[in-house]
Amino acid sequence: MGMSYGMENFIAILPLLVKMAVVVFVLLLLPLPLTWIERKIAAHIQQRPGPMRVGWHGLLQPLADAIKLLTKEDHIPTDADRLLFRMAPVVALVPPFVVFVAIPFGEPVRLFGVDITLSMSNMNVGLLFILAVSGIGVFGVILAGWASNSKYAVLGSLRSIAQMISYEIPMGFSVIGVVMLANSMNLSDIVAAQSGVWNIVYQPIGFFVFFVAGLAEAQRIPFDLPEAEGDLGAGYHTEYSGIRFSLFALSEYLVVVILAILNVLLFFGGWQHSPFFLTPSLWFLLKIGFFIWVFMWFRFTFPRYRYDQLMTIGWKVLLPLSLLNILVSGIFMF
């Protein structure tokens, strides 16, 4: 964690600054293609062509949407807590960005005669850091729900809190098996430990629990109770419009991307075993894309669970399963 030790000269931190700039730039632009892909997948599952009119096959549609959102009226409800209302989207956006500090994207590469690691900080508590920081993401939801002074928003954020707290526990437990196999919480080490066989082979139950809990953490269908449009309007961001709403949408997309990355890193070998025609990092990105596609496929296939079913799945199915997984892996490793 050499955060501030010996970084006196600018040259030493230049690669870091470049990496930060690239990541922030990419993350800010990422939702544009993702919304297009999601809408296209939604459309084709429902046997319709989707956006077609702005650009080739609607490719510029997200740009048009972005312009629309940026120029819309920014409305704040009368009795809202104005400061918190303004803060909430930003608070929701910060944790997904912070998580990317700890995510590696490949083996170190040599560029311009300098060894460059493809991560911002190769911290030895990386996995724990990611879980902890993504747990903070719920604060944006809480603030939005509270500050809007609207019943739908408060109910949505109450559901959100209960859901996130419930599913954080099985999610945290499900990765313990992976940590035991790699003997480390460093994500690069975890990937390196999968050079033989991917973790999915040893940890199918762990993967299942992580995948389902991850869907719930990202509030994707079938666990999108906090923003169930049928009964809650739009949940915690009912009162938001324009740019602030788009910040919430941005953070939701980033959470999905993070989940896909974690699934690949922890259970599908990261950048290991790339086929001959792909560089390891591209292979890694390809797998991430596959997981994002799977999440979208799920979204337009499954109906939503009921609230009590959600809690039952979290506490009575996933938690015992993850504990069992730890026990079994422990016995095998012993």
């Binding site: 084709h44 046997q47 319709r48 062509p49 296939t301």
Partner: peptide, 12 residues
Amino acid sequence: LTLRYMFSKTIT
């Protein structure tokens, strides 16, 4: 089912 629809022709 949805996978089959995803790669079938659109009907609209």
